[in-house]
Structure formats: structure tokens, C-alpha cells
Design a protein around this nucleic acid. Structure first.
Lengths: 221, 221
DNA sequence: CACTTAAGTAAATATCTTTTGATTTAATTT
DNA sequence: AAATTAAATCAAAAGATATTTACTTAAGTG
């Protein structure tokens, strides 16, 4: 190869940096799997985005499946960390109930890839989440905390109900997530743009009102 | 080929029946696309299930994409027909609000493929639903009917709120669908089997209570 | 009953995707 | 500074999947 050709294709070798390369692959894989799902995701797109060679995925992760698993673990680990920061023990039950809804709502709104990964994982019938012990253990404390909050609010006479914590959790998540998971179809069907920020702000208020009024708290009038 | 071989591979020719073949392909395609999504779906699995040759998909539908579109139209057409039977004008507003939730909940519970198709269509960012004018027009009357019901209940002094019909619709759908769409991940996370029939019966009661109490209706106490 | 049409079959092709083998070379260690 | 390790590249094999071509034959038609 001539000196000229050499100069043109310039830095054909990437400087070595295992941590960075691994991290970039993982980060781009989050987007790719979130956006297209496991079957729709393309190894080539990930490597292009990570500006590295396809071989590296096999080097660092073992294959497409293992990479997917690493991505799933990674997005769950992130929300677990955030949840752990929440403590429902401090303020009065009404404030805490509101915090619960707002935290959940905001986390989903701000971390689009999390819901998208979950949507795909459910399409695969939870094939991979079942393999991850880490994820299994994660939300137990969160749900336990909700149970304690319900107990506290009810015995203080502030809540008129003491719902099953799991039902309440599923409801909070449903109210916060469904319009994001189904923005395309719902938006088409109702003729509104659900990705619009003012729509989502309305949705947030609505979600809070629904949960608080279910607990028997007057939010107006 | 010998007579013996002939006899062994027996009826290698399928009796001709265009309507039946087309209908069987469509029906099996609903399951395949619902179960695996567009990218996960396999043409070969569909033809095997429909007991016909892959060529027939191209003969009757033109290709995998067009078949998917036909499936999407088909599942939406089905729910549209059911919704059209509902009329919220008759009974008192409380009963009608309850009917709204119960109808939505039951339809989703009983027609698993519908939600699954929608989940996948959202993974594809609504790529195909946007092409279907039929689906666009479909839910407008349903949402209008919800709006009228809210109006009626509020002016009769039975509801304490008059929510935006779209927000209420999204909430009813969310409460009815989220645990089905996310049964695998939620089930793992909360450590319960959300596909269990008694769990789902509880969920149904819960959904009704949430919506009715939001509208300001006492469901107990 | 010849004749036409299109339903159906079988096999090959064209593509697209993941994965691996062989090799180079940057960094680290002794 | 030679030797070693493993990060990175390149190219192609291996695998899977959608689609098409060429052909066969059942059913309907004048």
C-alpha cells in the first residue's frame, strides 16, 4: 500500500480501550434493542453506532443474546438505584402517595428506553428476565414500602381504603406507562399527539388525581 | 416414481378452496404476528400452521408486510364491531360508567391477540396503523360516546368530575391492558402470576373501583 | 370435453444476518 | 527490548429467511 493510500484511510486502527469499547457497545445496544426489539435489532447497526467492529460484540459479550441480557440488566439496575433513593417514611401519607405517582410517572417519561426494553421483553414472554436473579430481587422492597405507606395512611384515617399494594403498584405503573407504550396506536385512534409535552403534563395531573381520589383524598371542590 | 412411493406420500395435493386457504393463512398469521411480532414472525411457521405452501402467502396477500397489514385491519375491525354494539345512552350514568370499564376489561382479557398486535405495532412506531384509514375512523364514535356519558353524569350531579374523555379513555384502557401487556415482567417483579384467573378477577374489581371513585362515586362504606 | 384459469407444489435463489477464523498490532510485562 | 497478551481488523463462512421461478393439476366454462 502506498504512502498516499495510507494517509487517506488514516486512523484505521482504533486506540485500545477495553472499558470504553465495552461501554459504548452496551450503550448503543440499549438504543438498538429498545428501538427495534430483539428480533428487529441488528448487530451491524450497533457496531456502526459504537464505531467498532462486529467482532467486538462476540469478544466482550459472547453474542447477540448475551448482549441483550446485559442491556436488560443494565436498564433495570438503573431504575432500582433510583427507587432505592425514595423513602416513603418521612412526610404525611398524602404527600407520599403523590410522590409515588410522580416519581413513577417522571421516571418512565424521562427514561424512554426502560419501557421500550420491557415492552420487548414481554413480547418475548419474559424469556430473559426470568434468567436474571438480580431483577427478581429488585422491586420487592419498593412494593413493601408501598404496603407500609398504605397501612400508615389508612390507620391514620387519611386514606379511606387500604388496597393491595400489588394492585396499587400495577395501577400506578399502568397510568404512567400505557400512553407511552402505546403512543403510536392510541395517538392515531384518538387523533391527538400523545408525545406532545403539554399532553403529557395533563396526563401527569390526571394520573395523580386518579390515584389520590381512589385513596379517598379530595383533590378539589 | 413407483406406485409404492406414490402411496406413501399420499395426498400431496391439497383440495382447492381459495376462501378457506386465504382465511386459514390470515387466521394463523394473526397468531404468529401476535405471538412473535413482525420481525419475530416466520413465514414458514404460518404456512405450516395453515397447512399450505409458502407461495400461497404471495399469491393471496403479496408478501409478509401486506399479510401483516391484513392481520392488523382484521383485529381492529373485530373490536370495532363489538364497540358499536355498546350504547351508553340507556341506563343511569353510574351503571354506564361501570359497563364502560367492564366491557373494555373483558374484551382485552378475552381477545389476547388484539393487545399483542397493538403492542407490536407500537414497537414499529405505528408504521402500519398510520396507513389504515379504516382504523383511524373507528374509535371516534366510541370516544364521543364517553364524552356524552361524562356530560350526562356530571350535569345530573352524579359524577363529581367531568374529565376529558380522552384522558378517561386512556385510563380505562391502561387499567385494563397494562397487566396483560406486561404479565411476564410484572409477574416476575411482584412475584405473582398475573395470568392466574383469580388474580385477573381481582384486577377487574380494582379497575372498576378506581374509575368509579375517580368520578366521585362511592363504591363502599 | 377440450380449454382456460388460477390454486397449489417443489425447488432454487437472492438476501440478509449472525458468527467465526485468521491475522495484525497496541499496550503491558518481565 | 524482547516476549506476551488481548484489543481490534478484515474477510468470509455459516445460517436463516423471504421471495421467485418454473412447473403441475384441479376445478370451472363455453
Amino acid at each position: 500500500m502506498s504512502k498516499v493510500e495510507d494517509a487517506l484511510k488514516a486512523p484505521s486502527v482504533r486506540s485500545r480501550n477495553p472499558e470504553r469499547t465495552r461501554a459504548e457497545i452496551l450503550s448503543e445496544a440499549v438504543h438498538e434493542f429498545a428501538e427495534h426489539g430483539f428480533h428487529g435489532a441488528r448487530v451491524e447497526r450497533i457496531t456502526k453506532a459504537a464505531k467498532c467492529n462486529a467482532r467486538m460484540i462476540y469478544h466482550y459479550f459472547g453474542g447477540k443474546e448475551q448482549l441483550y441480557l446485559a442491556v436488560l440488566d443494565s436498564v433495570y439496575a438503573q431504575i432500582r438505584n433510583r427507587e432505592a433513593q425514595l423513602r416513603f417514611g418521612t412526610a404525611d401519607p398524602i404527600t407520599e402517595a403523590r410522590r409515588l405517582v410522580e416519581f413513577t410517572y417522571d421516571y418512565f417519561a424521562e427514561n424512554g428506553d426502560f419501557l421500550k426494553m420491557i415492552r420487548n421483553e414481554n413480547l418475548l414472554q419474559g424469556k430473559y428476565i426470568k434468567r436474571s436473579q438480580m431483577i427478581r430481587d429488585m422491586s420487592q422492597p419498593f412494593i413493601a414500602a408501598i404496603g407500609e405507606l398504605m397501612e400508615r395512611g389508612y390507620s391514620a384515617g387519611v386514606f379511606s381504603r387500604k388496597p393491595d399494594p400489588v394492585q396499587l403498584y400495577v395501577t400506578v405503573v399502568a397510568l404512567s406507562a400505557h400512553h407511552l407504550n402505546n403512543a403510536a396506536t392510541l395517538g392515531t385512534v384518538v387523533g391527538q399527539d400523545l408525545t406532545d409535552l403539554s399532553w403529557q403534563a395533563e396526563r401527569r395531573d390526571h394520573a395523580v388525581e386518579v390515584v389520590l381520589s381512589y385513596l379517598g383524598i379530595q383533590t378539589r371542590g
